[in-house]
């Protein structure tokens, strides 16, 4: 794996682990972070740069979704408290 791709993969992993710290639900953070770990481990033997980049793109999509989930959760909580 080239250094460039390697840093992208590690960056994505760190970002997802960081996002997981606030995952809702009982044991949400632990569960989410373990799932991320498993997902990365599943593809640890992948060597084709194209496939790796496709997986990274999918990971970034997941990160975007999680961010959207958090902001929606916060928006709903505030809306319920102050506007309903």
């Amino acid at each position: 794996m080239s250094a460039e791709i390697r840093s992208k993969v590690i960056g994505l992993y760190k970002h997802l682990q960081y996002l997981g710290r606030e995952y809702p639900g009982p044991n949400g953070p632990q569960k989410f972070r373990q799932q991320i770990r498993d997902a990365f481990l599943k593809h640890k033997d992948e060597t084709d740069p194209k496939k790796i980049m496709a997986l990274v793109a999918h990971g970034r999509y997941v990160a975007k979704e999680v961010e959207a989930l958090y902001s929606l959760k916060k928006y709903r909580a505030l809306k319920q408290r102050y506007y309903d």
Partner: peptide
Amino acid sequence: DLRLNTPRYATLP
């Protein structure tokens, strides 16, 4: 107010 925008999430870097 609440609907002005959606705040961004700070990235690790």
